[in-house]
Design a protein around this nucleic acid. Structure first.
Lengths: 138, 138
DNA sequence: TAATATCCTACCAATTTAGTAGGGGATATT
DNA sequence: AATATCCCCTACTAAATTGGTAGGATATTA
């Protein structure tokens, strides 16, 4: 399950995507529009910025904006930044790999299935972008 | 990510699958063979029993055994019993559905993607069985 | 009735989640 | 230069979840 924080991230990014090209957007605007607790949102946007998905500007006229077009931000990237691994087991994660104790990976049946599952999931989440979720309703 | 408990469940079920048809197996045997803390395993097996995947017998000569053949126990079922929802959002879960607040499901783009993801995942996890993970190495 | 083995209730420490509080620092305007 | 604006950073906290442990109750067999 994705955390509430991740769902907030998607909603905030959608708002920024809808306003892409219009200059910096205030945290407080996003907070109001998407009903996300302000200080929590501050934290989320900052993490997305550190992950290079957003850029920010301080002072009057400042705010956050997408660093690249909504078509270039895929959902797998967002989930990894805010939620963590996409795979169901650490030993099949591409970005957060951790070895299993007491398990020979070559012969582990669970690992084989979880690898297939990971690939199927990634095929979708890496293809779908912010643009897709913004304009899904049309 | 699947919990440690779920991974224990898979390992315990694999052991029971390997010994299918041999009568009741002791919790302590599974615990030793698969290196799972005894009392924790007790709890896990009991939950699997309540979910109708195992049957148990008390007293001397007792223990746990699979209620049906390893070919009839799919991984999605096990995950749902021990880990919970398979979907990435409650609003797209088939077995643990919960409505989103502040979201029109008909037009929610995130929901659409997460539905596709869920279906792709289930297609694999509902098809793969205990038998598959036991004999994956061959 | 004694031994065996599961079942049940309750507890516990560590970690994660979902925030809140408050000030610091950069920027723009007046 | 002063001030208002707005992001940035550190620290704290309550509640829930995770990963167990302890101990006795209950059922079964010999």
């Amino acid at each position: 399950m994705l955390s509430k924080k991740t769902r907030y991230a998607f909603r905030a990014l959608s708002y920024l995507g809808e306003n892409y090209g219009k200059g910096p957007i205030l945290i407080s605007d996003i907070s109001k529009a998407k009903k996300i607790p302000l200080k929590f949102l501050e934290n989320i946007l900052n993490e997305l910025k550190k992950a290079d998905l957003l850029e920010s500007k301080k002072g009057k006229g400042g705010g956050y904006s997408l660093k690249v077009s909504p078509k270039k931000i895929n959902l797998a990237t967002v989930i990894r930044v805010i939620n963590g691994p996409i795979a169901l087991l650490p030993c099949v994660s591409l970005n957060f790999y951790e070895r299993c104790e007491d398990c020979d990976e070559t012969y582990c049946g669970i690992r084989k299935v979880m690898t297939i599952t990971r690939d199927a999931t990634l095929k979708i989440l890496e293809k779908k972008t912010l643009h897709d979720i913004i304009f899904a309703s049309i």
